[in-house]
Design a protein around this nucleic acid. Structure first.
Lengths: 238, 238
DNA sequence: CGAATAGTTGAGGACTATCAAAAGTGGTGG
DNA sequence: CCACCACTTTTGATAGTCCTCAACTATTCG
Protein backbone atom coordinates (compact mmCIF):
# COMPACT_ATOMS: atom_id res chain seq x y z
CA UNK A 1 0.00 0.00 0.00
CA UNK A 2 2.61 2.48 1.09
CA UNK A 3 5.61 1.00 -0.72
CA UNK A 4 5.53 3.60 -3.43
CA UNK A 5 5.98 6.32 -0.86
CA UNK A 6 8.83 4.44 0.77
CA UNK A 7 10.50 4.03 -2.59
CA UNK A 8 10.21 7.74 -3.17
CA UNK A 9 11.71 8.67 0.17
CA UNK A 10 14.57 6.27 -0.42
CA UNK A 11 15.42 8.25 -3.49
CA UNK A 12 15.50 11.35 -1.32
CA UNK A 13 17.74 10.19 1.49
CA UNK A 14 19.38 7.01 2.64
CA UNK A 15 17.06 5.17 4.95
CA UNK A 16 17.75 2.11 7.01
CA UNK A 17 15.54 -0.92 7.26
CA UNK A 18 14.04 0.30 10.51
CA UNK A 19 13.13 3.61 8.92
CA UNK A 20 11.31 1.91 6.10
CA UNK A 21 9.58 -0.36 8.51
CA UNK A 22 8.38 2.58 10.56
CA UNK A 23 7.08 4.27 7.43
CA UNK A 24 5.17 1.18 6.43
CA UNK A 25 3.66 0.95 9.88
CA UNK A 26 2.23 4.45 9.82
CA UNK A 27 -1.38 4.23 10.87
CA UNK A 28 -3.57 5.51 8.07
CA UNK A 29 -7.12 5.59 6.90
CA UNK A 30 -7.73 4.71 3.28
CA UNK A 31 -10.22 6.68 1.30
CA UNK A 32 -11.37 6.77 -2.30
CA UNK A 33 -12.11 10.08 -3.95
CA UNK A 34 -13.99 10.28 -7.22
CA UNK A 35 -12.62 12.57 -9.93
CA UNK A 36 -13.21 16.17 -9.03
CA UNK A 37 -13.71 15.56 -5.32
CA UNK A 38 -11.98 17.97 -2.98
CA UNK A 39 -9.52 16.47 -0.54
CA UNK A 40 -8.62 19.76 1.11
CA UNK A 41 -10.09 23.21 0.74
CA UNK A 42 -8.19 26.45 1.05
CA UNK A 43 -8.77 27.79 4.54
CA UNK A 44 -9.38 24.37 6.10
CA UNK A 45 -7.83 23.61 9.45
CA UNK A 46 -5.17 21.02 8.77
CA UNK A 47 -5.02 17.92 10.89
CA UNK A 48 -3.68 15.24 8.63
CA UNK A 49 -1.34 14.56 5.78
CA UNK A 50 -2.60 12.95 2.64
CA UNK A 51 -0.67 10.42 0.64
CA UNK A 52 -1.73 9.62 -2.90
CA UNK A 53 -1.90 5.86 -3.40
CA UNK A 54 -3.37 5.69 -6.88
CA UNK A 55 -4.80 8.09 -9.41
CA UNK A 56 -3.87 11.72 -9.89
CA UNK A 57 -4.55 14.86 -7.92
CA UNK A 58 -3.69 18.50 -8.14
CA UNK A 59 -3.44 21.53 -5.91
CA UNK A 60 -4.92 24.84 -6.89
CA UNK A 61 -5.55 28.34 -5.67
CA UNK A 62 -8.05 30.99 -6.67
CA UNK A 63 -7.51 34.70 -7.00
CA UNK A 64 -9.99 37.05 -5.40
CA UNK A 65 -11.49 37.47 -8.87
CA UNK A 66 -12.19 33.78 -9.16
CA UNK A 67 -9.42 32.86 -11.60
CA UNK A 68 -7.96 29.48 -10.88
CA UNK A 69 -4.33 28.45 -10.94
CA UNK A 70 -3.24 24.87 -10.61
CA UNK A 71 0.08 24.91 -8.78
CA UNK A 72 1.07 21.26 -8.85
CA UNK A 73 0.05 17.89 -10.18
CA UNK A 74 0.59 14.73 -8.20
CA UNK A 75 1.15 11.11 -9.01
CA UNK A 76 0.93 8.03 -6.82
CA UNK A 77 3.47 8.03 -4.03
CA UNK A 78 3.36 11.79 -3.56
CA UNK A 79 2.51 13.38 -0.27
CA UNK A 80 -0.14 16.10 -0.71
CA UNK A 81 1.64 17.35 1.19
CA UNK A 82 3.48 17.31 4.42
CA UNK A 83 2.07 20.72 5.19
CA UNK A 84 -0.81 19.04 6.87
CA UNK A 85 1.41 17.84 9.66
CA UNK A 86 3.05 21.15 10.43
CA UNK A 87 0.94 24.08 9.25
CA UNK A 88 -2.36 25.13 10.68
CA UNK A 89 -4.42 26.29 7.74
CA UNK A 90 -4.47 25.15 4.13
CA UNK A 91 -3.30 27.87 1.75
CA UNK A 92 -4.61 25.96 -1.26
CA UNK A 93 -7.13 23.33 -2.25
CA UNK A 94 -6.40 19.78 -3.27
CA UNK A 95 -8.64 18.02 -5.71
CA UNK A 96 -8.71 14.57 -7.24
CA UNK A 97 -7.96 14.73 -10.95
CA UNK A 98 -9.03 11.16 -11.58
CA UNK A 99 -10.56 8.63 -9.27
CA UNK A 100 -7.93 8.40 -6.57
CA UNK A 101 -7.14 6.31 -3.55
CA UNK A 102 -5.52 8.24 -0.73
CA UNK A 103 -4.22 7.44 2.70
CA UNK A 104 -4.86 10.05 5.34
CA UNK A 105 -2.40 10.11 8.17
CA UNK A 106 -3.14 12.05 11.31
CA UNK A 107 -0.72 14.81 12.17
CA UNK A 108 0.32 13.22 15.45
CA UNK A 109 1.47 10.06 13.71
CA UNK A 110 3.63 11.95 11.28
CA UNK A 111 5.13 13.94 14.10
CA UNK A 112 5.73 10.87 16.22
CA UNK A 113 7.44 9.25 13.27
CA UNK A 114 9.81 12.07 12.55
CA UNK A 115 10.61 12.39 16.24
CA UNK A 116 11.49 8.75 16.55
CA UNK A 117 13.14 8.39 13.13
CA UNK A 118 15.17 11.50 12.31
CA UNK A 119 16.33 10.08 8.99
CA UNK A 120 12.73 9.82 7.89
CA UNK A 121 12.18 13.39 8.97
CA UNK A 122 15.16 14.40 6.92
CA UNK A 123 13.85 12.56 3.86
CA UNK A 124 10.53 14.31 4.25
CA UNK A 125 12.18 17.66 4.59
CA UNK A 126 14.19 17.01 1.45
CA UNK A 127 10.95 16.08 -0.24
CA UNK A 128 9.58 19.47 0.78
CA UNK A 129 12.67 21.15 -0.61
CA UNK A 130 12.30 19.38 -3.93
CA UNK A 131 8.66 20.37 -4.04
CA UNK A 132 9.83 23.93 -3.53
CA UNK A 133 12.22 23.59 -6.43
CA UNK A 134 9.41 22.41 -8.66
CA UNK A 135 7.31 25.41 -7.64
CA UNK A 136 10.16 27.69 -8.60
CA UNK A 137 10.32 26.07 -11.99
CA UNK A 138 6.59 26.60 -12.35
CA UNK A 139 6.95 30.27 -11.51
CA UNK A 140 9.43 30.53 -14.34
CA UNK A 141 7.37 28.39 -16.66
CA UNK A 142 4.30 30.50 -16.21
CA UNK A 143 6.19 33.77 -16.00
CA UNK A 144 8.66 33.52 -18.83
CA UNK A 145 7.89 30.84 -21.36
CA UNK A 146 5.59 31.35 -24.33
CA UNK A 147 2.57 29.09 -24.63
CA UNK A 148 4.14 26.39 -26.79
CA UNK A 149 7.16 25.90 -24.61
CA UNK A 150 5.11 26.30 -21.48
CA UNK A 151 2.72 23.52 -22.40
CA UNK A 152 5.55 21.36 -23.67
CA UNK A 153 7.44 21.83 -20.46
CA UNK A 154 4.53 20.63 -18.42
CA UNK A 155 4.23 17.55 -20.59
CA UNK A 156 7.95 16.86 -20.20
CA UNK A 157 7.88 17.23 -16.46
CA UNK A 158 4.93 14.94 -16.12
CA UNK A 159 6.49 12.31 -18.38
CA UNK A 160 9.74 12.37 -16.49
CA UNK A 161 8.14 12.19 -13.08
CA UNK A 162 6.02 9.26 -14.15
CA UNK A 163 9.11 7.54 -15.42
CA UNK A 164 11.01 8.06 -12.22
CA UNK A 165 8.13 6.70 -10.22
CA UNK A 166 8.08 3.64 -12.45
CA UNK A 167 4.67 4.52 -13.81
CA UNK A 168 5.47 5.19 -17.44
CA UNK A 169 8.16 6.42 -19.70
CA UNK A 170 8.99 9.38 -21.86
CA UNK A 171 7.65 7.82 -25.03
CA UNK A 172 4.05 8.35 -24.03
CA UNK A 173 1.54 8.18 -21.22
CA UNK A 174 -2.04 8.63 -20.26
CA UNK A 175 -2.66 12.25 -19.48
CA UNK A 176 -6.13 12.66 -18.08
CA UNK A 177 -6.21 16.44 -17.74
CA UNK A 178 -8.86 18.35 -19.63
CA UNK A 179 -7.67 21.27 -21.68
CA UNK A 180 -9.32 23.57 -19.21
CA UNK A 181 -7.26 22.08 -16.40
CA UNK A 182 -4.17 22.31 -18.54
CA UNK A 183 -5.01 25.95 -19.04
CA UNK A 184 -5.26 26.49 -15.31
CA UNK A 185 -1.91 24.84 -14.84
CA UNK A 186 -0.18 26.90 -17.49
CA UNK A 187 -1.86 30.23 -16.88
CA UNK A 188 -3.47 30.22 -20.33
CA UNK A 189 -7.06 29.88 -21.50
CA UNK A 190 -8.46 26.58 -22.61
CA UNK A 191 -8.99 27.94 -26.12
CA UNK A 192 -5.36 28.86 -26.38
CA UNK A 193 -4.24 25.55 -24.95
CA UNK A 194 -6.28 23.84 -27.62
CA UNK A 195 -4.55 25.81 -30.34
CA UNK A 196 -1.15 25.33 -28.77
CA UNK A 197 -1.56 21.57 -28.54
CA UNK A 198 -2.64 21.50 -32.15
CA UNK A 199 0.55 23.26 -33.13
CA UNK A 200 2.66 20.85 -31.07
CA UNK A 201 0.93 18.03 -32.86
CA UNK A 202 1.31 19.58 -36.30
CA UNK A 203 5.00 19.96 -35.66
CA UNK A 204 5.24 16.31 -34.74
CA UNK A 205 6.28 17.00 -31.17
CA UNK A 206 3.39 15.11 -29.68
CA UNK A 207 0.60 12.84 -30.83
CA UNK A 208 -2.74 12.95 -29.08
CA UNK A 209 -5.25 10.17 -28.94
CA UNK A 210 -8.10 10.82 -26.55
CA UNK A 211 -6.27 11.49 -23.34
CA UNK A 212 -3.16 9.62 -24.32
CA UNK A 213 -0.04 11.59 -25.22
CA UNK A 214 2.68 10.08 -27.36
CA UNK A 215 6.07 11.71 -27.58
CA UNK A 216 7.69 10.50 -30.80
CA UNK A 217 10.98 12.23 -30.15
CA UNK A 218 11.69 12.97 -26.52
CA UNK A 219 14.82 15.01 -27.14
CA UNK A 220 13.13 17.22 -29.66
CA UNK A 221 10.25 18.02 -27.31
CA UNK A 222 12.63 18.46 -24.41
CA UNK A 223 14.79 20.90 -26.35
CA UNK A 224 11.85 22.82 -27.73
CA UNK A 225 10.44 23.27 -24.24
CA UNK A 226 13.79 24.03 -22.64
CA UNK A 227 13.22 21.23 -20.17
CA UNK A 228 16.20 20.62 -17.92
CA UNK A 229 15.51 18.11 -15.21
CA UNK A 230 18.07 19.51 -12.79
CA UNK A 231 15.29 21.07 -10.76
CA UNK A 232 13.76 17.67 -10.03
CA UNK A 233 16.86 16.85 -7.96
CA UNK A 234 16.88 13.22 -8.99
CA UNK A 235 20.33 12.54 -7.61
CA UNK A 236 19.58 13.12 -4.00
CA UNK A 237 20.05 9.84 -2.15
CA UNK A 238 23.48 10.81 -0.90
CA UNK B 1 24.14 39.03 14.47
CA UNK B 2 21.85 36.07 14.17
CA UNK B 3 19.04 37.28 16.41
CA UNK B 4 16.81 38.17 13.53
CA UNK B 5 16.94 34.60 12.31
CA UNK B 6 16.16 33.31 15.77
CA UNK B 7 13.24 35.67 16.01
CA UNK B 8 11.95 34.36 12.72
CA UNK B 9 12.21 30.73 13.71
CA UNK B 10 10.44 31.47 16.97
CA UNK B 11 7.52 32.66 14.94
CA UNK B 12 7.56 29.35 13.12
CA UNK B 13 7.66 26.94 16.04
CA UNK B 14 8.02 27.07 19.78
CA UNK B 15 11.66 26.91 20.68
CA UNK B 16 13.19 26.55 24.09
CA UNK B 17 16.04 28.60 25.44
CA UNK B 18 18.53 25.87 24.61
CA UNK B 19 17.34 25.77 21.02
CA UNK B 20 17.83 29.49 20.61
CA UNK B 21 21.20 29.24 22.25
CA UNK B 22 22.26 26.53 19.84
CA UNK B 23 21.09 28.61 16.91
CA UNK B 24 23.07 31.59 18.09
CA UNK B 25 26.14 29.44 18.49
CA UNK B 26 26.08 28.21 14.91
CA UNK B 27 29.55 28.65 13.50
CA UNK B 28 29.39 30.97 10.53
CA UNK B 29 31.54 33.03 8.29
CA UNK B 30 30.41 36.57 7.65
CA UNK B 31 30.68 37.99 4.18
CA UNK B 32 29.67 41.20 2.46
CA UNK B 33 28.30 41.11 -1.07
CA UNK B 34 27.99 44.24 -3.14
CA UNK B 35 24.77 44.83 -5.04
CA UNK B 36 24.52 42.49 -7.99
CA UNK B 37 27.07 39.98 -6.71
CA UNK B 38 26.15 36.35 -7.05
CA UNK B 39 25.98 34.33 -3.86
CA UNK B 40 25.08 31.07 -5.55
CA UNK B 41 24.92 30.11 -9.19
CA UNK B 42 22.53 27.63 -10.72
CA UNK B 43 24.38 24.35 -11.09
CA UNK B 44 26.78 25.01 -8.22
CA UNK B 45 27.55 22.20 -5.85
CA UNK B 46 25.97 23.17 -2.57
CA UNK B 47 27.95 22.96 0.62
CA UNK B 48 26.58 25.68 2.82
CA UNK B 49 23.49 27.55 3.77
CA UNK B 50 23.36 31.27 3.50
CA UNK B 51 21.63 33.52 5.97
CA UNK B 52 20.85 37.09 5.04
CA UNK B 53 21.95 39.44 7.82
CA UNK B 54 21.33 42.80 6.19
CA UNK B 55 20.34 44.08 2.80
CA UNK B 56 18.18 42.34 0.23
CA UNK B 57 18.74 39.41 -2.08
CA UNK B 58 16.75 37.48 -4.62
CA UNK B 59 16.75 34.10 -6.28
CA UNK B 60 16.32 33.71 -9.97
CA UNK B 61 16.34 31.19 -12.78
CA UNK B 62 16.90 31.47 -16.50
CA UNK B 63 15.09 29.71 -19.30
CA UNK B 64 17.12 28.04 -22.03
CA UNK B 65 16.34 31.11 -24.15
CA UNK B 66 17.94 33.42 -21.62
CA UNK B 67 14.80 34.94 -20.14
CA UNK B 68 15.13 35.59 -16.46
CA UNK B 69 12.56 34.96 -13.75
CA UNK B 70 13.03 36.12 -10.21
CA UNK B 71 11.36 33.56 -7.98
CA UNK B 72 11.74 35.13 -4.55
CA UNK B 73 12.94 38.21 -2.76
CA UNK B 74 14.59 38.02 0.61
CA UNK B 75 14.89 40.30 3.60
CA UNK B 76 17.23 40.17 6.58
CA UNK B 77 16.69 37.13 8.72
CA UNK B 78 15.79 34.88 5.77
CA UNK B 79 17.67 31.72 4.99
CA UNK B 80 18.63 31.56 1.30
CA UNK B 81 17.81 28.85 1.77
CA UNK B 82 18.08 25.67 3.69
CA UNK B 83 18.49 23.80 0.44
CA UNK B 84 22.19 24.24 0.76
CA UNK B 85 22.27 21.89 3.70
CA UNK B 86 20.32 19.08 2.10
CA UNK B 87 20.40 19.25 -1.68
CA UNK B 88 23.41 18.66 -3.86
CA UNK B 89 23.11 21.10 -6.70
CA UNK B 90 21.63 24.59 -6.84
CA UNK B 91 18.59 24.75 -9.09
CA UNK B 92 18.66 28.54 -9.12
CA UNK B 93 20.98 31.47 -8.60
CA UNK B 94 21.03 33.83 -5.68
CA UNK B 95 22.07 37.40 -6.13
CA UNK B 96 22.46 40.38 -3.82
CA UNK B 97 19.87 43.03 -4.63
CA UNK B 98 21.53 45.67 -2.50
CA UNK B 99 24.77 45.57 -0.61
CA UNK B 100 24.20 42.68 1.73
CA UNK B 101 25.83 41.03 4.67
CA UNK B 102 25.43 37.30 4.79
CA UNK B 103 26.47 34.52 7.10
CA UNK B 104 27.50 31.32 5.43
CA UNK B 105 27.02 28.21 7.48
CA UNK B 106 28.62 24.96 6.44
CA UNK B 107 26.26 22.10 5.74
CA UNK B 108 27.68 19.93 8.49
CA UNK B 109 26.90 22.53 11.13
CA UNK B 110 23.30 22.83 10.04
CA UNK B 111 22.96 19.08 10.04
CA UNK B 112 24.61 18.72 13.43
CA UNK B 113 22.25 21.34 14.79
CA UNK B 114 19.08 19.71 13.56
CA UNK B 115 20.27 16.35 14.78
CA UNK B 116 20.93 17.66 18.27
CA UNK B 117 17.96 20.02 18.41
CA UNK B 118 14.93 18.46 16.74
CA UNK B 119 12.73 21.44 17.54
CA UNK B 120 15.08 23.62 15.54
CA UNK B 121 14.91 21.14 12.71
CA UNK B 122 11.16 21.32 12.85
CA UNK B 123 11.19 25.12 12.77
CA UNK B 124 13.44 25.02 9.73
CA UNK B 125 11.22 22.53 8.01
CA UNK B 126 8.21 24.72 8.69
CA UNK B 127 10.18 27.58 7.25
CA UNK B 128 10.69 25.53 4.11
CA UNK B 129 6.98 24.79 3.97
CA UNK B 130 6.10 28.45 4.25
CA UNK B 131 8.58 29.23 1.51
CA UNK B 132 6.77 26.67 -0.58
CA UNK B 133 3.48 28.38 0.12
CA UNK B 134 4.91 31.67 -1.06
CA UNK B 135 6.12 30.04 -4.27
CA UNK B 136 2.64 28.74 -4.89
CA UNK B 137 1.26 32.21 -4.47
CA UNK B 138 3.82 33.46 -6.96
CA UNK B 139 2.78 30.83 -9.46
CA UNK B 140 -0.73 32.16 -9.20
CA UNK B 141 0.38 35.75 -9.22
CA UNK B 142 2.34 35.33 -12.40
CA UNK B 143 -0.10 32.92 -13.98
CA UNK B 144 -3.43 34.49 -13.30
CA UNK B 145 -3.29 38.12 -12.29
CA UNK B 146 -3.20 41.00 -14.76
CA UNK B 147 -0.25 43.36 -14.60
CA UNK B 148 -1.75 45.91 -12.23
CA UNK B 149 -2.81 43.43 -9.62
CA UNK B 150 0.32 41.40 -10.14
CA UNK B 151 2.62 44.30 -9.40
CA UNK B 152 0.42 45.49 -6.56
CA UNK B 153 0.46 42.07 -5.03
CA UNK B 154 4.22 41.98 -5.00
CA UNK B 155 4.31 45.36 -3.29
CA UNK B 156 1.81 44.17 -0.70
CA UNK B 157 3.71 41.01 0.05
CA UNK B 158 6.95 42.85 0.44
CA UNK B 159 5.39 45.46 2.72
CA UNK B 160 3.80 42.86 4.92
CA UNK B 161 6.90 40.75 5.21
CA UNK B 162 8.99 43.76 6.15
CA UNK B 163 6.44 44.64 8.78
CA UNK B 164 6.44 41.18 10.28
CA UNK B 165 10.21 41.22 10.44
CA UNK B 166 10.06 44.56 12.22
CA UNK B 167 11.76 46.30 9.34
CA UNK B 168 9.00 48.62 8.18
CA UNK B 169 5.29 48.93 7.94
CA UNK B 170 2.54 48.90 5.38
CA UNK B 171 2.44 52.67 5.02
CA UNK B 172 5.63 52.76 3.01
CA UNK B 173 9.11 51.43 2.63
CA UNK B 174 12.29 51.61 0.70
CA UNK B 175 12.02 49.37 -2.31
CA UNK B 176 15.35 49.16 -4.07
CA UNK B 177 14.37 47.03 -7.04
CA UNK B 178 14.84 48.44 -10.49
CA UNK B 179 11.88 48.24 -12.82
CA UNK B 180 13.75 45.64 -14.80
CA UNK B 181 14.08 43.49 -11.72
CA UNK B 182 10.45 44.06 -10.92
CA UNK B 183 9.66 42.93 -14.43
CA UNK B 184 11.64 39.75 -13.92
CA UNK B 185 9.78 39.09 -10.70
CA UNK B 186 6.36 39.62 -12.22
CA UNK B 187 6.92 38.02 -15.59
CA UNK B 188 6.41 41.32 -17.42
CA UNK B 189 8.74 43.59 -19.35
CA UNK B 190 10.32 46.61 -17.76
CA UNK B 191 8.44 48.89 -20.13
CA UNK B 192 5.15 47.45 -19.07
CA UNK B 193 6.10 47.59 -15.41
CA UNK B 194 6.85 51.24 -15.88
CA UNK B 195 3.43 51.87 -17.34
CA UNK B 196 1.73 49.77 -14.72
CA UNK B 197 3.39 51.60 -11.85
CA UNK B 198 2.38 54.86 -13.40
CA UNK B 199 -1.23 53.74 -13.43
CA UNK B 200 -1.03 52.61 -9.81
CA UNK B 201 0.33 56.03 -8.96
CA UNK B 202 -2.30 57.86 -11.00
CA UNK B 203 -5.01 55.96 -9.19
CA UNK B 204 -3.52 56.95 -5.86
CA UNK B 205 -2.69 53.42 -4.86
CA UNK B 206 0.99 54.12 -4.42
CA UNK B 207 3.32 57.10 -4.37
CA UNK B 208 6.82 56.75 -5.69
CA UNK B 209 9.77 58.84 -4.73
CA UNK B 210 13.05 57.52 -6.03
CA UNK B 211 13.09 54.02 -4.71
CA UNK B 212 10.73 54.73 -1.86
CA UNK B 213 7.16 53.44 -2.09
CA UNK B 214 4.39 55.03 -0.06
CA UNK B 215 1.08 53.27 0.33
CA UNK B 216 -1.50 55.93 1.22
CA UNK B 217 -4.31 53.45 1.74
CA UNK B 218 -3.19 49.95 2.55
CA UNK B 219 -6.63 48.41 2.36
CA UNK B 220 -7.34 49.86 -1.00
CA UNK B 221 -4.11 48.53 -2.47
CA UNK B 222 -4.59 45.22 -0.74
CA UNK B 223 -8.10 44.83 -2.14
CA UNK B 224 -7.14 45.94 -5.62
CA UNK B 225 -4.34 43.38 -5.70
CA UNK B 226 -6.39 40.63 -4.11
CA UNK B 227 -3.73 40.23 -1.45
CA UNK B 228 -4.70 37.77 1.26
CA UNK B 229 -1.92 37.07 3.69
CA UNK B 230 -3.13 33.61 4.60
CA UNK B 231 -0.38 32.11 2.49
CA UNK B 232 2.31 33.72 4.64
CA UNK B 233 1.23 31.47 7.52
CA UNK B 234 1.85 34.11 10.14
CA UNK B 235 0.08 32.22 12.89
CA UNK B 236 2.38 29.28 13.08
CA UNK B 237 4.05 29.29 16.49
CA UNK B 238 1.66 26.73 17.90
C1' DC C 1 31.10 66.68 -15.46
C1' DG C 2 30.56 62.62 -18.23
C1' DA C 3 29.49 57.86 -18.71
C1' DA C 4 26.59 54.39 -17.42
C1' DT C 5 22.40 52.94 -15.60
C1' DA C 6 17.55 53.49 -14.88
C1' DG C 7 13.17 55.44 -15.99
C1' DT C 8 9.83 57.31 -19.45
C1' DT C 9 7.33 57.71 -23.65
C1' DG C 10 5.53 56.58 -28.42
C1' DA C 11 4.28 53.63 -32.24
C1' DG C 12 3.32 49.35 -33.95
C1' DG C 13 2.91 44.41 -33.63
C1' DA C 14 2.39 39.80 -31.49
C1' DC C 15 0.57 36.74 -28.42
C1' DT C 16 -3.16 35.53 -25.86
C1' DA C 17 -7.99 36.43 -24.34
C1' DT C 18 -12.90 36.79 -25.15
C1' DC C 19 -17.15 35.55 -27.16
C1' DA C 20 -19.79 32.45 -29.60
C1' DA C 21 -21.03 28.40 -31.81
C1' DA C 22 -20.35 23.86 -33.79
C1' DA C 23 -18.73 19.24 -33.36
C1' DG C 24 -17.21 15.39 -30.72
C1' DT C 25 -17.32 12.29 -26.49
C1' DG C 26 -19.12 9.75 -22.72
C1' DG C 27 -22.48 8.37 -19.63
C1' DT C 28 -27.54 7.50 -18.33
C1' DG C 29 -31.98 5.90 -18.74
C1' DG C 30 -35.85 4.43 -21.23
C1' DC D 1 -29.59 0.18 -28.45
C1' DC D 2 -30.71 4.76 -29.17
C1' DA D 3 -31.94 9.39 -27.44
C1' DC D 4 -30.46 12.73 -24.57
C1' DC D 5 -27.65 15.52 -21.61
C1' DA D 6 -23.43 17.32 -19.87
C1' DC D 7 -18.99 18.07 -20.74
C1' DT D 8 -15.00 18.66 -23.64
C1' DT D 9 -12.76 19.84 -27.81
C1' DT D 10 -12.48 22.55 -31.85
C1' DT D 11 -12.95 26.54 -34.77
C1' DG D 12 -13.72 31.43 -36.22
C1' DA D 13 -13.79 36.31 -35.52
C1' DT D 14 -12.48 40.10 -32.85
C1' DA D 15 -10.42 42.55 -29.04
C1' DG D 16 -6.97 43.72 -25.74
C1' DT D 17 -3.07 43.17 -22.90
C1' DC D 18 1.43 43.13 -23.12
C1' DC D 19 5.75 43.08 -25.98
C1' DT D 20 9.30 45.02 -29.12
C1' DC D 21 11.94 48.54 -30.82
C1' DA D 22 13.63 52.90 -30.37
C1' DA D 23 14.59 57.29 -28.69
C1' DC D 24 14.69 60.52 -25.14
C1' DT D 25 15.14 62.08 -20.22
C1' DA D 26 16.57 61.57 -15.52
C1' DT D 27 19.55 59.80 -12.05
C1' DT D 28 23.70 58.02 -10.06
C1' DC D 29 28.40 57.71 -9.23
C1' DG D 30 33.26 58.02 -10.03
Amino acid sequence: MLERMVRKFRRRASLEESDCQALLELPFRKRVAEAGRYLVREGDQLEESILLLSGLAYRHKMTADGARQIVSIHIPGDFLDLEGALLKVADHSIQALTRAEVATIAREHVIALIDSHPRVGRAMWIDTLVDGSIFREWVMNVGRRPAKQRSGHLLCEFARRLEIAGLGDTSGYEFPMSQEQLADATGLTSVHVNRTLKVLELEGLIVRNKRFITIPDWERLRDMAGFNELYLHLDQAA
